[in-house]
């Protein structure tokens, strides 16, 4: 699985037409995607694809953009304390937070380009960032326990949900994780669903009421997997 880059280079969305050529169930939806979206970046399918795609796109929007980076940094500056307040040990998470903030500074400086971000996004960096995203997600869920507890189906508590479905590095993100992380980061994201259901691809917006100066990120969801997708 590590053969595939954590976040791949941009490729045309039209490539999906080839991939689904033999699959009539998806034909209509793929055409809709090709009409609306220009290119996509494939994320490594190891369970962390939502976290890395979303973070990558956030950093991508801050490339060489001081204003955005400043607004985002202001929102995140107390994030480590926030996570400690729900019970994480400082020693266990501070390196992840530091890496996250260092990358923020490195990509937002004048002259940084997408290539800067791609180069900095090594496998090691990817692990640190994904881990930080998971910690943030858990911390938000735990802090807003009352809002989330009623949505649990297979878990007895938010604490247990986080220990089993958020913190472990191979667990996939679903509605609750996306809601929590996007609420914490305050960067709008739309998940576009490509599945066998009728009609055009369904879209679900998260954190679209954010006041941070970001444009909505789009993630293409196919059962069990997320990739980044960019509107025309």
């Amino acid at each position: 699985m590590e053969d595939q880059e954590a976040v791949g280079p941009p490729v045309p969305v039209a490539d999906l037409k080839v991939q689904y050529a033999e699959n009539p169930d998806f034909k209509q939806k793929v055409e809709f995607l090709v009409d609306r979206f220009q290119h996509m970046r494939r994320a490594r399918p190891d369970g962390s694809c939502f976290y890395r795609s979303y973070l990558f796109a956030i950093f991508e929007q801050m490339v060489g953009d001081k204003e955005r980076a400043l607004a985002f940094r202001e929102r995140q500056k107390d994030a480590l304390e926030f996570c400690l307040s729900v019970g994480y040990e400082r020693m266990a998470i501070e390196d992840f937070f530091d890496d996250f903030m260092e990358l923020l500074d490195a990509v937002s400086v004048e002259g940084a380009t997408r290539a800067t971000l791609e180069d900095l996004w090594t496998d090691e960096k990817d692990r640190y960032l994904v881990c930080w995203a998971r910690v943030l997600t858990s911390a938000y869920l735990k802090r807003h326990e009352q809002d989330f507890a009623c949505f649990l189906t297979a878990h007895s508590s938010v604490q247990q949900f986080c220990a089993q479905e958020v913190d472990p590095m191979t667990t996939e993100a679903d509605h609750l994780q996306i809601t929590a992380l996007s609420s914490q980061l305050q960067v709008p994201v739309t998940v576009v669903y490509l599945d066998r259901s009728e009609g055009s691809a369904a879209e679900h917006p998260f954190a679209h009421d954010s006041t941070l100066p970001f444009t909505p990120i789009h993630l293409l969801y196919r059962p069990g997997h997320y990739d980044l997708i960019y509107p025309k």
Binding site: R127, C131, Q164, P168, M169, T170
Partner: peptide
């Protein structure tokens, strides 16, 4: 104990 195997997280520690 699941945290020693499938449910391990890098945010866990020896102490935890």
């Amino acid at each position: 104990l699941s945290i020693l195997y499938d449910a391990w997280s890098p945010a866990l520690t020896v102490h935890a």
